[in-house]
């Protein structure tokens, strides 16, 4: 039992931090610009493909630096020349535009790298088991991924709370015109924020693309879960996104590892005539993957602000 608890905590932490890594860029863009960037997962995909390509040419460490920069630049261009034109027309226009961008990126990737998964693997230098507990090894790469994830959390926190640019960014969100009057270049600040948000997606792509699968379907498959993390955590809250990621990580691991059904959880053994017999006897492991969506609905109903959000959706 102790081993199982250790496994749930450890693996929940690994998976939770991966989720945070994936959703940090979306949180930044939403909290600082109020833009719900539908194309976030597509930028994550670009990061993975750039990472794969640069790693094939050079090595992983150069890819880890160059790929996010490239994705960030691309994001900046999108904001500067396309997205900035529709800010004035409200959130629906922004959402539709980023929706279009997301599909454009997916099709571009298919044209450039083909329709099948590419062979994007972990760097050999980090591809060894760091330690083994109860027969399950923890590869050094996973620990590296966790470090990157935590580092991003700390850096973002410091950037926004402790630096001058961070304060200007925050001010621009609430008092856009006033900050503009004071002589700050608002479009440039927005382009910067959007660029950093996309670069974060790029980091997630480079680091997470080889833990998951790098294929044209990856954006669509990861898209829903990062929205769930942001909604559950509270729109625009980094602490919330981290808390939500870890919560989902732990819960999902716990549900999968546990050998009980819904009925068993509340201590009843319904007969076949019992209403909802099928659902109640469903093993929890089978429901683990859809649990995040259930959690999102629950949060939206009883606590629309999310775990740590400041605004209601």
């Amino acid at each position: 039992m102790l081993h199982t608890i250790f496994f749930v905590l450890m693996n929940g932490l690994v998976y939770g931090l991966l989720l945070f890594l994936l959703s940090s860029g979306l949180t930044l863009i939403f909290s600082m610009m109020g833009v719900l960037n539908f194309a976030q997962a597509s930028f994550y995909m670009l990061g993975a493909y750039f990472g794969y390509q640069i790693m094939a040419w050079t090595n992983f460490w150069i890819a880890l630096i160059c790929a996010p920069v490239l994705v960030g630049l691309l994001g900046t261009l999108v904001e500067r020349y396309v997205l900035s034109k529709v800010h004035a027309r409200g959130h629906v226009a922004e959402l539709l535009l980023t929706f279009g961008v997301s599909y454009l990126v997916i099709e571009m990737v298919k044209l450039a790298w083909g329709v099948n998964a590419v062979s994007y693997n972990q760097p050999p230098a980090l591809n060894f088991p760091l330690f083994t507990v109860d027969g399950v090894s923890y590869p050094a790469y996973n620990i590296f991924m966790m470090v990157v994830s935590v580092l991003i959390f700390v850096l973002l926190f410091l950037l926004l709370k402790k630096t001058r640019i961070g304060i200007i960014i925050q001010a621009a969100l609430s008092n856009r015109d006033m900050v503009g009057m004071l002589g700050h270049n608002i479009p440039r600040i927005f382009a910067l924020v959007f660029g950093i948000g996309c670069a974060l997606a790029g980091v997630a792509g480079v680091v997470g693309g080889n833990i998951l699968v790098t294929e044209p379907g990856m954006a669509l498959s990861i898209g829903p879960i990062i929205f769930v993390v942001v909604v559950v955590g509270g729109m625009g809250s980094f602490g919330g996104a981290l808390a939500a990621s870890l919560l989902i990580g732990f819960l999902q691991n716990y549900m999968t590892t546990l050998n009980v059904s819904l009925a068993g959880l509340v201590g009843i053994t319904p007969g076949t005539q019992f209403p909802l017999y099928e659902l109640l006897n469903q093993p929890l492991s089978q429901l683990a993957a859809i649990m995040p969506y259930f959690l999102m609905i629950l949060i939206l109903t009883i606590r629309p602000k999310g775990l740590m959000g400041r605004v209601e959706i």
Partner: peptide, 13 residues
Amino acid sequence: QTKDYTPFIYKIK
């Protein structure tokens, strides 16, 4: 829907 198969690997183990 499943992104993390590690818990299943744990169960197999």
